[in-house]
Structure formats: C-alpha cells, structure tokens
C-alpha cells in the first residue's frame, strides 16, 4: 500500500489541477518511487486516481524510457549509446560494465543493486562518454572512473 502522506499529497495535486490527466506522468513517477518500479498495483492506482483505465495508463507506462514496468535495481545505470558517446568508446564501456557487473544489458545484478540499460543521447555530449545513475550524470567516463563509481555506490548501499 502507498503511504498515506504520499497518497494525500497526490490527491491534493489532482484536485487542484485543471485537467487531472496532465499529472499522469508525475503520478506514475511518484508511485514508481514508492514501489521501486511501476508495479501492476501502481498502474491500477494511477488509473483510479486519475479516472483512467489501467490500459490507458499501461499505454503510457510502456512508452516512456524512465518508467519501469519491471523491478529494477537500487541503482539504474543508463549508458548513453548515441553517436557522440559511441565515437568516444561507449561500446567498450558497455562491455566493461557488463563484465564488471556480470550481467547483460537490460539485466539487474542478482543482489538487486544495479540495473544496466542503454539510453539515447542524454544531452551531455560535451562530457562524452556519459551515463546516468539514478538520473545523475557522470562523464567523461573511463573504465577506471566507472570502477571507482561502482565501488562507491556499493559502499553507500551497505
């Protein structure tokens, strides 16, 4: 269940909106924050809050890059694979990450810490190759910097 404060905050915002549906992405983000991903229950709750059918919500949930319909790790790594990062070695960085985390792209480590996903140009081509970890940007990256960061995140989570 969603905690009451979160729910009532959302309800207040929805009541104040001219068109409740304009808040659908915000609501999905808030519920995703709570569940860790956009669970079936979150899809239904979103629909109930905004007067949308679960299918209408699903149509959006599966469309957007930053909404996850499956469980993800505590740290979601989005590695940019668009052209500038690609020129600057995004592919070898990807291989490095896969090797380090012992997972393929699109997977989550068994300890539930890291999910590795490709992403389109994140608007930091002046810092290529770049990636996001929980939407925070890192770059320009080298394998060494990636290792340091992974180590730091692991420690933080302990």
């Amino acid at each position: 269940m969603i905690p009451e404060p979160t729910l009532s905050h959302l309800k207040d915002r929805i009541a104040a909106a001219d068109h409740p549906r304009e808040l659908v992405v915000d609501v999905m983000f808030a519920l995703q924050e709570h569940y860790g991903y956009l669970s079936d229950e979150a899809v239904e709750t979103t629909g109930a809050l905004l007067g949308m059918s679960p299918l209408q919500v699903e149509e959006l949930a599966t469309f957007y890059t930053f909404l996850y319909r499956e469980p993800v790790g505590r740290y979601v790594i989005h590695l940019c694979d668009s052209v500038i990062c690609w020129l600057d070695g995004a592919e070898s960085l990807r291989d490095h990450l896969c090797r380090k985390l012992k997972i393929e792209m699109g997977r989550t480590t068994p300890d539930g810490l890291f999910t590795l996903l490709p992403v389109c140009c994140i608007g930091y081509c002046d810092r290529s190759p770049a990636m996001l970890v929980n939407r925070k940007v890192y770059g320009p990256l080298t394998p060494e910097k990636v290792d340091e960061l992974l180590e730091k995140l692991k420690q933080e989570s302990e």
Partner: peptide, 10 residues
C-alpha cells in the same frame, strides 16, 4: 532537447 548532439537548452 532530445536531438542527439544538442545540449544548448540545458
């Protein structure tokens, strides 16, 4: 601003 290569708006 999702056009690859573009980061001026940021």
């Amino acid at each position: 601003e999702m056009e690859p290569g573009t980061f001026k708006d940021r």
